[in-house]
Each structure stands twice: as C-alpha cells, then as structure tokens.
Design a protein around this nucleic acid. Sequence first.
DNA 1: CGATTATCCTGTGCGC
DNA 2: TGCGCACAGGATAATC
Length: 292
Amino acid sequence: LPELPEAETVRSDLARVYQGDRLARISVTGRRTVRRHRPELLRTLEGLTLTGVGRHGKYLLLQWEGGPVMVAHLRMSGQLLSAQAGDPVALHTHAVLRFAHAGELRFVDPRTFGELFIAAPGPGLGSGPAPVANAAPGRGGGGPNLTGLAHLGPDALSIGAPDLHAALAGRRAPLKALLVDQRVLAGVGNIYADEICFEARLRPHRAAGSLARAEVTRLAASTRSVLAAAIVARGSTLADNGYQDLSGRPGSFQLQHQVYARAGLPCGRCGRPVQRIIFGARRAYFCPHCQR
DNA sequence: CGATTATCCTGTGCGC
DNA sequence: TGCGCACAGGATAATC
C-alpha cells in the first residue's frame, strides 16, 4: 500500500510521537519480518534514544543515538501503529517496540511482505552523515549510503527535471514502468504513477525516452506536486482500509484521485470516460483524450 | 535492455 | 449462505 505519501505521513507521525524517547524493549515474533539478519540484532537498539526519523522513497529510517539506523518497509500490507502497553494486540502483530515514555510502536502486517532491518553504512566512504528526512536533489541519483538501500534512485518528492531527464533518456520502456522502478525513482507506486501521468497529461505507455524536454519538465513538476498534495491529505486509503496512519486513521487523497481505479468514470478534465489498460502484470488508468 | 512470469502471503469481494 | 477464484498499494529473480 504505502507509497511515498503514506510513508511520509507515517514518518512525520513517528518523529512527533517517539523522537527523543528511549527504546526500553523490542520484541520480534514474526518469522519473516526480520529476515535479512538475526532478529536478535535489533535488541542492540535497546536503551538507545530515537534521534530522528528519515525516509527515502517508501523506506522509513529510524535513526538512533550513536548512529545505528533501523529500516522499515511496509510493502503491501504493513502498518506501524501506536499503542499503549496492555492494549489488545492485533492479529498479525510481528514486532513491538516499547518506549520508556511514549508507549508502544507495533508493526502489523498480514501478508508479511514488509520487513525491518538494521542498516550499516554501505560500501563506499562509510561513516557519512546520517540520512536526512528527504534526500537532497541532484545528488547523482543514488539512494542512501546504507546497506540494502544503495540501489534506490533519487527521492521522488524532490525530483528535478535534469535528474528525471537523465533517468528517462534513451529508454524505450513505458513511462509508467520506469516511474514505479525504485532504482530509477524512489517512492512512486501504482496509484501515484497513474495520478502523476494524468497531471502531466502523458500516457503511461509512452516510451520514456520519447518525451520532449518540456514534457520531462512537466512530468517532474507533476511528480512533486501530486506527491506533495497527497502528503497534505495524509495519503490514500482505499476501500479495504489497508493504509492507516500511526493512530489508525485513514488518509483522504483517494477523494482527489483523477484516474486511479476510475475506469469508465468521467475524466475530471474533459468528461470522457477513464480507460483501464493491462500493463504487464498490473493495471494502468488514464484518459485517452487528455493524455498524450 | 525490455517483456513476461512467478514468488513471497493473507484478506476481501465477487459471481455463481 | 457458502464456496472458489481473482485480485490487491511491492520488490525481486529468472527466463527469453
């Protein structure tokens, strides 16, 4: 579920509630949730204070006193929920972080695609600055200098036209396929790729390398503005309530969706029906009249 | 490189 | 009501 706007909403909630507090105890019960290393490794964070919460693309970066970073990715069905000790434990709760003062942070994930892991500084110069909330633009397109995240492209929220042009130039793949490729651009998934293409008035199946300069500039601007608007609305919560914020509340950006899951409904710009096409293994929604 | 398919899982909603 | 099936916001690997 969570794409960049949902991850960013959870990021700011986490910082507000837990930053500055000390981790008293962490327990991991899910077998698959911590799968990149021994689950016990997470216990080395016990006693440390949460100094900041960053994000790159859809990845959340919990930064602890002394440098360690715990990475969380919610994948399809993960949720990070605040709770008080003693509150009923939801089905599919795989990890619980108990803080000294702010209560518990619980990782709940029915499909178990999500994961938690501790990241070390990646190959390269190491010991660089701690990751910040949003990657700086124009930094050569890389992800954070952390193991497991180095393959990520630049964060979509601050993508600039030059970086986007570099990423799309010469590529014959469909535009949408590259927008959702985290190595190209980090943070965009199925919902926002369609909304961004609509806003930029570009067809999702256009060959990425065929975009004119002006179109790439428009696409970069649309990427930033759609994601920013979705963050203001605290993300998109679809019919199954799969996404909720830290407090269990839904987002509202789904009310502003222009094309996603709106096959046959009138395009808000021209009134003609939105079309759905099959696109690889997934669907894409677009307006054949407004998008070229 | 690009396209296609499969895989990891559970829950929901639909048609019959 | 109940059952079986398709499908779901993601990421990754394998194959052609």
